[in-house]
Amino acid sequence: MPDIKEDVVLDARNLLCPMPVVKAGKQIRTLEDGQILKILATDRGSIADFPAWADDTGNELLEWHEEDGTFVFFVRKVEEED
């Protein structure tokens, strides 16, 4: 198991596309620069969706793994520089 300490956990289990990404988008806005969001999801599509979402939003996907059918993602909030 990776040694990452999250600041906030988002439980998006049992939700299907696009709701995990929608909830993550909403949640990450409440975090401060550098804080870490842990996301739990059961939607298989999230394996592709969260890396793409992190890339598009400029946040950093630190690590993800599968745990008994749940996909766990760690995303570090990166404040946008304009």
Partner: peptide, 11 residues
């Protein structure tokens, strides 16, 4: 609606 909400979630 799915694409619109997902796009909004990516900012």
């Amino acid at each position: 609606l799915i694409l619109a909400t997902a796009a909004a979630a990516t900012g």
